[in-house]
Every structure is written in structure tokens, then in C-alpha cells.
């Protein structure tokens, strides 16, 4: 993995912020990935097209970007952990009405107390989880 470089990190963040702002400004929608994908899976007809378009843009840009810059993508978790983690992320983001994008980038920017609380909780819990798996039982 390449060493930490603040420039691409900031630049990537700016693009993410820009995506969130244009969706709110033009369409009045939250660029929350879990809400968009979850809504798509619920099969809500009225909002199917814009959600599908957003996901297509995200996956498409990911596909092109990976071809162009080919960054490392290291998925270290083994299969059982991967599946458990996926289920928890899926259920948790729906129960908590958002993820890193919806609460972290959009909600916090709007000064939402709910989003600030959710972000503080999921980051703290994720830090604790990594501490337990890497330093207490993993080590």
C-alpha cells in the first residue's frame, strides 16, 4: 500500500462533497448510499430511476477509476467475517437511517444532531472493533 498522501485524500473528498451538493441542490436528495441502495432494494417504484442512475454512476466511475489508476484494494477479512460484516453494515445502516455518506458527509454538513450523533457512534464502535480484532484477539 502506498504511504499516506494528503493531496489525493483531500481531492477525493472534494469530489465526494461536490457529488453530495449537486444532488441536494438540483434534486433535493440526500446522497446517502445506504438509503439509495436500500430504497432500490425495497422496490419503491416512484424513486427507482434516480436511485438506479446514482448507483450506476457510482459503480461505473468506480470501474473506470480502478482501470485508470489501479489503486490497491486489499480485502483482508476471510469469508465468514466478510459475510457477517456485510450483513451488519446492511442492517445497521438501514436501522440507523444512514452511513458514512448520508450521515457523515451530508447530515453533518447540514448540522443535523442525529447525523453527528450517528457518526460519533459508528466511528467509535468501528475503532473499538478494530482494537479488539487486531490487538486483543488478533495480535
Amino acid at each position: 500500500m502506498t504511504p499516506f498522501d494528503p493531496i489525493p485524500a483531500l481531492a477525493g473528498g472534494v469530489l465526494i462533497g461536490l457529488g453530495a451538493v449537486i444532488l441536494a441542490l438540483f434534486n433535493g436528495r440526500v446522497a446517502g448510499i445506504s438509503g439509495i441502495l436500500g430504497g432500490l432494494l425495497d422496490g419503491e417504484r416512484a424513486n427507482l430511476a434516480w436511485r438506479a442512475a446514482f448507483i450506476a454512476g457510482l459503480v461505473g466511475a468506480g470501474f473506470l477509476g480502478l482501470k485508470l489508476v489501479s489503486p490497491d484494494v486489499m480485502i483482508a477479512a476471510d469469508w465468514p467475517i466478510l459475510i457477517i460484516g456485510g450483513l451488519l453494515v446492511g442492517i445497521g445502516t438501514r436501522l440507523g437511517s444512514g452511513c458514512t455518506s448520508g450521515h457523515g458527509v451530508c447530515g453533518m454538513a447540514r448540522g443535523s444532531i442525529r447525523s453527528i450523533a450517528a457518526t460519533a457512534v459508528y466511528i467509535s464502535v468501528a475503532v473499538a472493533t478494530v482494537f479488539v480484532t487486531r490487538h486483543l484477539i488478533g495480535g
Binding site: G12, G19, A20, N27, A56, L58, A61, G65
Partner: peptide, 21 residues
């Protein structure tokens, strides 16, 4: 707009390397 917003998000996640767990 949705497609472009999703595209910006995807590009940002790649450039920032957040795509890498």
C-alpha cells in the same frame, strides 16, 4: 444529475483510496 453525482462520488472514493478496506 443523479448519474453525475454518483460518478463524482465513485471517482472521489477511488482517488482518495477509500475503496481500499
Amino acid at each position: 444529475v443523479s448519474l453525475i453525482a454518483g460518478g463524482l462520488f465513485g471517482a472521489g472514493l477511488i482517488i482518495s483510496q477509500m475503496v481500499n478496506p
